[in-house]
Simulated scan of single mutants.
Amino acid sequence: MSSSSDRPGRPPVTRLLEALEVKRNAVISLVVGIAFTVAVFLFFVVIPGVDQQLTYLIALGFVLATTTAGTVLIVLTVYQTIVLSRTLEDGEEM
């Protein structure tokens, strides 16, 4: 058995995901997606009293929540990438 000093560090992909704060962005995007879907569901289904099949509306709500969460995740991760790259550029110039 090899000792812990012989083991390589974390893989580069893991370090990149941590640097871009992907886990935090995923949680935020999930909350935003669910909140947006609940607001749309209330505004367009509950308040007007729509007489549609409930399973159909729940399926549409799931699609809306996942699409919104994915979009927010991409936007947050791209933003974090830009911030990180600017930080690295500023650090190299010093």
Rank of each mutant, 00 (worst) to 15 (best):
S2P: 15
D6A: 14
D6G: 15
R7E: 14
G9F: 08
G9W: 08
G9E: 05
V13Q: 12
V13K: 05
R15Q: 11
R15A: 06
R15V: 06
L16P: 10
L16N: 06
E18K: 09
A19I: 02
L20W: 03
E21F: 09
E21T: 06
R24A: 10
R24L: 06
V27H: 07
V27E: 05
I28G: 01
S29N: 01
L30T: 09
L30S: 10
V31N: 01
V31H: 00
I34D: 00
A35I: 10
F36C: 11
T37H: 01
T37P: 03
V38K: 09
V38S: 05
V40A: 07
V40N: 00
V40S: 02
F41A: 01
F41C: 03
F43I: 07
I47C: 02
G49Y: 02
D51W: 04
Q52C: 03
T55W: 15
L57P: 07
I58Q: 10
A59N: 14
L60S: 10
G61C: 05
F62P: 04
V63C: 10
T66S: 11
T67F: 06
T68E: 10
G70K: 04
T71S: 10
V72Q: 01
I74D: 05
Y79L: 13
Y79R: 13
V83W: 07
L84A: 09
R86L: 14
T87N: 12
T87V: 04
D90I: 05
E92G: 06
E92T: 11
E93K: 12
M94Y: 11
M94F: 10
